[in-house]
């Protein structure tokens, strides 16, 4: 028997609630960069970084650089697991134009400290997947102390809730000199808020629809445990009901055979857009999934696992889910 349930926050905070998080980002960012020459920022590991002046030379992991790029903060150099040996960044790179930006690490050696030193950084920025004080994405724990000696590390969370993380990136960007009140960013934020309102609206109207987030291959599939993913947590917060496959927190996935796919019945299926996994068309032709109610009804949509935690990235991701819910009907 399938021991799964549906997760949705009991207290839907509403557009005001989510918007408020982002707004809080702006105010605290303003506090963080006072006129005084000293610069300070508290990151998601609760480490307060204090520098004599606002950092100018920024060495960033691709996953942190992509949202900051959207906020108008350009990296001095890039590193991390998402830099490929040929200099491309993959989907995690978002809108970054890698042309002319040096790399100081790649998938083979995520962070080459000497190359970092050569860039003379004021600040290193990355993301973090856990509360573990030594867990900085793309930075080898064995060299963590030496890396910190080169420049302080600011880490923004990749777990929790995507909208909160986006607010945190906005705060960091503001602290680094981005003008969040620029025409472009104000418009981007407005678009994001529109998409939030749109998803909340449709989710409350179609509150009985359920969704499944999955990455499928032809010989098996993995079902996302929504509480482990920042974007899925946010969608649940906005009122989308997502199937929880009944695995312990931190497991990220439940592995299943395609034979039992239809037992995880939902009204909508979101399928990972990563290369090497099944596309919606292929899923519709895969036995087991073919019989899944959502697939049978053609209610299969793409899930971008490499969403960018910026206003623009959030707008794209949330709008995608909102459209999916709008176009879907109750089928179970």
């Amino acid at each position: 028997m399938v021991q799964s349930q549906f997760g949705r926050r009991r207290f839907v905070t509403g557009a005001v609630g989510v918007g408020a998080l982002v707004t809080r980002g702006i105010t605290s960012a303003q506090e963080a960069s006072p006129d005084a020459s000293e610069w300070s920022f508290t990151d998601d590991k609760d480490v307060t970084i204090t520098l004599p002046a606002r950092p100018e030379r920024l060495v960033m992991d691709v996953n942190a650089a992509a949202p900051l790029w959207d906020f108008g903060i350009k990296p001095t150099a890039l590193f991390g697991w998402n830099v490929y040996a040929d200099g491309t960044l993959g989907a995690a790179g978002g809108n970054i134009d890698p042309e002319g930006i040096p790399t100081v690490g790649n998938v083979n050696e995520p962070l080459n400290l000497e190359q970092v030193i050569a860039q003379d950084p004021d600040l290193i920025v990355t993301i973090t997947w856990s509360d573990d004080p030594s867990d900085y994405w793309s930075i080898d724990t064995a060299l963590l102390e030496q890396t910190k000696a080169v420049a302080p590390i600011a880490a923004i969370s990749a777990t929790g809730r995507a909208d909160v993380n986006t607010g945190r990136f906005a705060e960091l960007a503001a602290a680094l000199g981005a003008d969040l009140e620029s025409e472009e960013l104000v418009a981007a934020r407005a678009e994001m808020e529109t998409s939030i309102a749109r998803l909340q609206g449709v989710a409350s109207v179609k509150s009985d629809l359920t969704a499944l987030f999955v990455s499928a291959g032809e010989d098996g599939a993995v079902i996302a445990n929504p509480t482990d993913w920042a974007d899925l947590n946010m969608y649940m917060e906005l009122g989308v009901s997502i199937l929880e496959p009944g695995v312990e927190s931190g497991a990220y996935w439940l592995e299943i055979s395609n034979e039992v796919a239809a037992e995880y019945a939902t009204d909508i299926v979101f399928i990972s857009a990563r290369p090497g996994t099944l596309t919606p068309e292929e899923l519709a032709g895969t036995p087991g999934w073919e019989q899944h109610p959502a697939v049978a009804a053609g209610q299969v949509f793409l899930w971008n696992q490499d969403f960018i935690q910026s206003y623009q990235g959030m707008t794209t991701a949330i709008t995608g889910v909102a459209e999916a819910v709008e176009r879907s009907a109750k089928v179970i």
């Binding site: 697991w81 083979n108 050696e109 064995a142 060299l143 990455s215 993995v222 990220y252």
Partner: peptide, 25 residues
């Protein structure tokens, strides 16, 4: 095969044999 890309990537690179990030230890 079992684990997602984020989790296996460091492992895949390890299997290729590398001495980056060496410390005195």
């Amino acid at each position: 095969v079992k684990y997602p890309l984020e989790q296996i990537r460091p492992a895949v690179v390890w299997t290729m044999g590398s001495i980056y990030g060496s410390t005195w230890r």
